[in-house]
Design a protein around this nucleic acid. Sequence first.
DNA 1: GCTAGTCTCTGTATCGATACAGACTGGATC
DNA 2: GATCCAGTCTGTATCGATACAGAGACTAGC
Lengths: 354, 354
Amino acid sequence: MKPTLQAVADAVGVSRSTVSNAYSRPDQLSAILRERILDAARQLGYPGPNPTARSLRRGFVGSIGVLFTSQLSYAFTDPFAVRFLAGVGAAAERHGTSMLLVPLPPAVTDARRAVENAAVDGFCVYCVADEEWALDVIRQRGLPFVSTAARDDAGADERFVGIDERAAARSAAAHIAGLGHRRVALIADSVLPDAPAGPLTLAGVDQVPHPTTRDRLRGFADAFAEVGVGWAELTVVNVPGNSRTAAAAASAGLFDQPAPPTAVLAGSDVLALGVLDALAARPAHDRPPISVTGFDDVPEAAAAGLTTVRQPAEEKGRIAAELLLDPPADAAAGHVLLPTALVVRNSTGPVPRS
Amino acid sequence: MKPTLQAVADAVGVSRSTVSNAYSRPDQLSAILRERILDAARQLGYPGPNPTARSLRRGFVGSIGVLFTSQLSYAFTDPFAVRFLAGVGAAAERHGTSMLLVPLPPAVTDARRAVENAAVDGFCVYCVADEEWALDVIRQRGLPFVSTAARDDAGADERFVGIDERAAARSAAAHIAGLGHRRVALIADSVLPDAPAGPLTLAGVDQVPHPTTRDRLRGFADAFAEVGVGWAELTVVNVPGNSRTAAAAASAGLFDQPAPPTAVLAGSDVLALGVLDALAARPAHDRPPISVTGFDDVPEAAAAGLTTVRQPAEEKGRIAAELLLDPPADAAAGHVLLPTALVVRNSTGPVPRS
DNA sequence: GCTAGTCTCTGTATCGATACAGACTGGATC
DNA sequence: GATCCAGTCTGTATCGATACAGAGACTAGC
């Protein structure tokens, strides 16, 4: 059994408080006594104040949670998520705070419990799927949090860092529309919960529950509405999960239709790369010159020559953690909108004259 | 102030123990009383048992630490580290355990404190630099850990997952030697602590403190010794940190020497890619046909056509976490050696006849 | 010589829960 | 009717520290 602080106190013949001070408040005791205490501790093999007990008494833990409302192992597969994590890590480093990654079990009841049990001082919520239940639990616990997805019902005091999803998506679509494309497919993650992969019929964009997906689809639609292409004329392809292979599978059949789209707008680079994969998988003579756009500008996008919308991933993570660890006094400053930019590469081109 | 468990107990008129049981041991009380308690808790806004207090009393935390003996933000930059993390995450997910990423301040005293203060049940130690001090602290705390770097002084009971670094490195060098290369440079991370970037003189490989770097250099040397090329004839290039740009910088001057190497063996893919960058940066007419090998086989290696030694990254992380969370009864089973394989691509070729 | 003030150190209360032994009921068993 | 037992619930001890008020000892200042 490891000795406790009490054991060290007894060995030296001082009070528990004094030993505690030797570790946490060196100015509260003479240097000489402090050395005697630390020596005794070394001799006894005292491992230093128990972190859990300390946290309990102090009322804070010294670590922040990062919540992915999806499988944790997925987070490391998604290049954008990894850059986000790097940003959070950089901020955590600056503040001497640890990062707790909490895996969420598939069942919501279990997932709630996981969030309830996380020993953290606050959360960075990286939005992947529906997060409302998670925010409920966090609020219930009275913990601060920073969200990265804009929500309509967000309280004015809720901290947020993100981009104008709709405007950013619109810029990509405007580029495509400007190139003359009118038969267009939109491909996105979790368009409808539990909908199968592939094209689906959607009366309107309002039906999409996932806020980020919804906003991006809205942005795409905005640009096409402007050139006279209505929502009903757009093909929407659902992908269950933001996965390259899933996107390839879901989009494979798209180009064999009677009047195939000439451009595909993807809700993320990962999906866009999947679409490119599906095209590359076709025999060379049957490879239509489809324009493809992505979203995020992950490192792989540049290598693939993918036209995409850049958003600062690492910055997003860094600012999320900073907002959490060092909250601005001004509530308005807790709402950060990051810039985006359309990056045109060679995956997009004018609509071919047929 | 959030209500405590006591407050709920008072509200319902039962003992604290019973409320505790309502959450943690539902079989210990009648379903009907449990419902009454949970209802009251909801009404009072009780957030559920305080995770810290619970951990203190129970004696365990429900999370494992992942220790990178380098900057935490660096870990997310290194593709191999990310795959390792993904593996740890997958195992953590299976066990319902969280992962704590602990940033280590540059000063060792502070770094020790960070490890002392981490609220975890054990550590996966991902070896980047010298880790001995970290293992000391972990042992002192009496926590279990799994290491991924073989150390000479490892106790028989210490859990480990890794590869035969020396043999794996040797396989890459044997390939290069077999292609006829005799003037060769080895480039590695942290060959000597605080040594400047670039070629350095090293009496022997034993001087290298970092165990992984040392073993890989040894493996390289082994293969060349076999074809009559001694240690003194090998150029060793130091890179401070496993970084692509740093490797490019450190190796840039290498090819302007009177008798430049015809092959470069890198201690990691990241470094090898840096060497390729340095070559690509030269004007086309002055680009010698250098053979380059890497180590790890990260995703980027395939795209770059890099010949390398594959080691299973995700598997390594997964097994590290499994060994920690579900220790084998048999001590020998706690020592896992993973397979490696030489992957020959087009970054290596026969030595050019000049 | 007396009041203040500074350094050190102590003692008690507290953080918020869980473990475990034991008490109380009511029904089954013989 | 005594005994046993399973099902519920309570009470006390405990997990391992930190906060905070305050007690002594000493040095200064007047």
